[in-house]
Amino acid sequence: MKLMLQMLALILVATGLGAAVNAARPGRLPWRGDWDRHVETRALQQHIRLAGLATVQRAVNTGAPVLLDARPAADFRAGHLPRAQSLPFELAPEMLAGMQVPLARDQALLTYCARNDCDEGLELALLLRQQGYTNVMLFPGGLHEWRAGGGAVEGGL
């Protein structure tokens, strides 16, 4: 009983400290976050598989899965994942139709955009699935996470 009370005391002290410091912090974290609308939640709800850095590294090394950059073409030109193809979400239907070497419907595809607060990568993944592509994944961390991991970037100045 005494042990339980002591544990409770420790938790209460920690709660008080955490709440006080968080309240005093300039960029304080709200107690309830809007995670329901986060891109990863939406992807999982839509049964889009999420890829981590290991899968992206494999794609960069081997070309499989095929990396598709969903950002606008100008952003792609400024820097993109090695081996990635530009397929801006807004132009995707026309670009898919006009591809010289079309993507196979069962080919493994991996979409991404700038970072985990953009949603073009997810929108492109959903669009591809809608168009009949059966093996589509999303790299939610995007170019930001790839760079943060020390990954090389193609293009740009």
């Binding site: 420790l10 920690a14 955490g18 410091v21 974290l29 107690w31 309830r32």
Partner: peptide, 12 residues
């Protein structure tokens, strides 16, 4: 509960 855990866990 995600944010509450992020605020409290490190202090615990």
């Amino acid at each position: 509960l995600v944010n509450a855990a992020a605020i409290l866990l490190p202090w615990i």
